[in-house]
Design a protein around this nucleic acid. Sequence first.
DNA 1: AATGTTTTTATGTGCATACATAATAAATTG
DNA 2: CAATTTATTATGTATGCACATAAAAACATT
Lengths: 233, 233
Amino acid sequence: MNRVLFRDWQSVRDEVLRRIHARDWKPGELIPNEADLAIEFGCARTTMNRALRSVAETGLLDRRRKAGTRVAVQPVAKATLDIAVMRLEVEDRGQNYSYQLISRSLVVPPDEISQVMKSHTDEKLLHVHALHLADDKPYALEDRWLNLRVVPDARTQSFQTVSANEWLLRNTPYTHGEIEFSATAATPTTASLLACSDQSALFTIDRLTWDKQNDVTKVQLLFAPGHKLQPRL
Amino acid sequence: MNRVLFRDWQSVRDEVLRRIHARDWKPGELIPNEADLAIEFGCARTTMNRALRSVAETGLLDRRRKAGTRVAVQPVAKATLDIAVMRLEVEDRGQNYSYQLISRSLVVPPDEISQVMKSHTDEKLLHVHALHLADDKPYALEDRWLNLRVVPDARTQSFQTVSANEWLLRNTPYTHGEIEFSATAATPTTASLLACSDQSALFTIDRLTWDKQNDVTKVQLLFAPGHKLQPRL
DNA sequence: AATGTTTTTATGTGCATACATAATAAATTG
DNA sequence: CAATTTATTATGTATGCACATAAAAACATT
């Protein structure tokens, strides 16, 4: 019998993780209940609960009332990734960030955009096209649509020095958003802007940001070839 | 003064989120301390703490001892994404999953692989190449290296019907891993296997799985064109 | 056997309290 | 005045206890 006592929930969690990884507790297996484990670990049930809950959040444990706690059979890896402002992302890589506005225009968007953004027919949206650079080399191309009905202040913003990316985060309320990752082939236009060859495979992020019912902005980010995104596990 | 009391930590959290989104509490602003908020919300500090902690986990609040809690200036969006077994991923999309082994061979890996996997010179690794299909159409191409020193049981596995992906998860202990997303252009070989045109932009996932010091497996997944990955925010 | 009802039980959570810890602010010292 | 020490304070967390809740299991009823 293990006589080592575990003081804090982190060390309890670590021991739980060890047992799972070492297959002391095998996939699919039911583990003892909180109360019993708390006694074994020499801590309060509250502490045990916190530890087990945190492991369950990573997907390694499945917990259900009355049914108990069991080791996940197919551990759905829960990867978390931080999506920061472009500038911080570049600076975190130790590179020098710069920004370049390509175009800014008030236009009636193509159908696929107006549908997603629920803009009225013939309603103009602000279209901002810009380039983010790392150490003066193209890093990502930003293609953004802004709904001026929702963000009227954007009308007076030139976006020459501050990217729409950054300005929005600081000035616009929003309630929720959607993100999507994919791979896109470079078109002749995007290729020349990103200084890569036509048809290059580009890592792509599409974002849609909402404030209540209203779509604030829709943006597509095309990253220069070779870009990698590394989530924490 | 708000006389509504909040019973559980979720409703407290929701009200906190509302205040942030409504800019009652503006980015960069210091919010009242836990004890005061607990009184205002009519709950225990423990409950307030749980609520604030859960919001902080999403990146919307920055908390520091003594310094207090403030609304994040650059809300680093913390996206979480579930990386399940390929089969479940396909089935969750309501499609029919199937699997096809392309090749399985014991070979000395190219340098870049043996370096990452820290295999000895001339040491053979198990190389498994397979195709995952959704509704009988190519879904993803799996290119995997297995370290038989670490997973000796893999030697007797044919991987004809059960994918290495699934077999490993069920049978192999591991301590940690790395994931990386990127975009890759299809080569003639991969293009023909994925039934797409040469140079197509393919969404790519690279994974490295470790058990203590030992690399268990290294895998590259090339997804058929059009594949999108959608994290939860 | 099929259906509905009650009991049981493991997790989920709230609360009051106590103390730990990090980091700032204030006080002290050379 | 800069450097160092000390006090203060907001968050972080352990604990015991109580009760809520979901869901399985046992039981009862048709």
